[in-house]
Design a binder for these strands. Structure first.
Lengths: 233, 233
DNA sequence: ACGCCCTTGTGAAAGTACGCACAAAGTAGG
DNA sequence: CCTACTTTGTGCGTACTTTCACAAGGGCGT
């Protein structure tokens, strides 16, 4: 029995699957723009750079949206994935730290093909406060609590130097932010109810260096062929 | 028996471990600077935000560098991890695309606490070519092959618009680059001998949105406590 | 209507990763 | 030297992930 939740839906999409849905979504949106109506798991998997069985299993977690013998309806699948990812509603984002990186993020057009609205930019440096970046006036970090509260920000992006990151994070969390995207090279501590994702340039480089060294050591002759980058993430 | 490779070492470090080593390394370097001589797996794990058993198992893949009853020698461990990650030698990096992001990357000081040297910046836009960014003169993308060859670049960073990414990647690869760090929102195709890692802002945001929606739906009361962010990567 | 062919959805197997719990090994104090 | 205490290194059970392989389902031509 174990009556678990109000909804009958299982609601147990594996994390690994969630991480791939955005990739599928992007591929599908590209196809939709080019006027493609349906796509097979084989073709979509090739574009997304994954195994087709994995793709089918991933999609099966959302429901049975394919048609045997035909494939998947592109538009319908775009809608279903968007809905599952929560992109049918808008999320409000605030960015703390308007250095080179913060600027790059603010100007990142579309910001994930809609679904995300940048509500505010914060910085602690008085020389930057008041500047206009990406159509927004940079505010002082001390106004963070006010703005996050009034704008109902749910996602905080941390693009500050490492030393300030935890402090800014704490303020975000206290102000009500429940998801944090961290670009600073530090491990953040947050309450369990808050999600943190980390993007760290130097970690990525170091992982590449590891494999690079491997290749240099006992240079195993690479098997021939040219495969889709199964970008190890 | 199975005499496999020249070196007796097993040389089979799990990918998940490799991805965490840089985190440990950073924590250890911080401790070293602060003068800490030894550290227990418990303490280091807390700082790195992981389970201590996992930390010990990770480190055990490099060898037995701890002392029971005492812990790990900080300096020694820094050295061992650095060596394993291939940071005892310098890797040469080239960045393609000098927009906001490329600039941010070029100026990212230390570039992973040494070990990486930026040899060149490339851009296709004539208005940017010739500018000085982070102490380097931006070169035209058409000189990519020459520079990559003469400077012996092994890691290529792609910070171009999505449409140019695959083309630039192909040129990098043809010129001899064997690792690629891709910031463009596309899946790159490369030969099997080339490693690709992807950093994708909108994917990260979409994953956060998914969890955000979860929380909003059936708002499961979060259990109390304040834990270290086990930053899901 | 029928049967062929194509593609999905999924059971089961294989491969990874995680974390507990404890024996082994070392330190320190008497 | 012996005992008490600390911390590593790892065996083992569990959970998650990936991949294979194929039965079931659905369209399309005749």
């Amino acid at each position: 029995m174990t009556p678990r939740s109000p909804r009958p839906k299982d609601r147990g999409i594996p994390e690994a699957t969630v991480a791939r849905l955005p990739v599928y979504l992007r591929a599908l949106q590209g196809m939709a723009e080019r006027g493609t109506l349906t796509v097979s798991s084989e073709d979509l998997a090739a574009i997304a750079g994954v195994n087709s069985a994995k793709l089918r299993k991933d999609l099966s977690h959302l429901g049975s949206y394919g048609t045997r013998g035909v494939g998947y309806d592109v538009d319908y699948l775009v809608y279903q994935i968007s809905r599952e990812l929560g992109l049918t509603q808008d999320w409000t984002v605030a960015i703390a730290g308007v250095g080179n990186l913060g600027r790059a993020l603010a100007n990142y057009g579309g910001f994930g093909t809609r679904g995300f609205r940048i509500a505010a930019l914060f910085d602690a440096d008085g020389r930057v406060v008041g500047d206009e970046v990406a159509g927004l006036v940079v505010r002082h970090i001390d106004t963070l609590e006010d703005v996050v509260g009034s704008e109902d920000v749910s996602i905080g992006v941390i693009a500050t130097p490492a030393v300030s990151a935890q402090g800014v994070c704490d303020r975000f969390v206290k102000a009500g932010v429940t998801s944090v995207l961290n670009f600073a090279p530090v491990v953040l501590s947050v309450p369990p109810a808050v999600d943190v994702r980390k993007v760290d340039l130097s970690i990525e480089l170091q992982i590449l260096a590891f494999h690079e060294q491997r290749k240099a050591d006992g240079q195993a002759p690479p098997e021939a062929g040219w495969i889709d980058a199964t970008e190890k993430t």
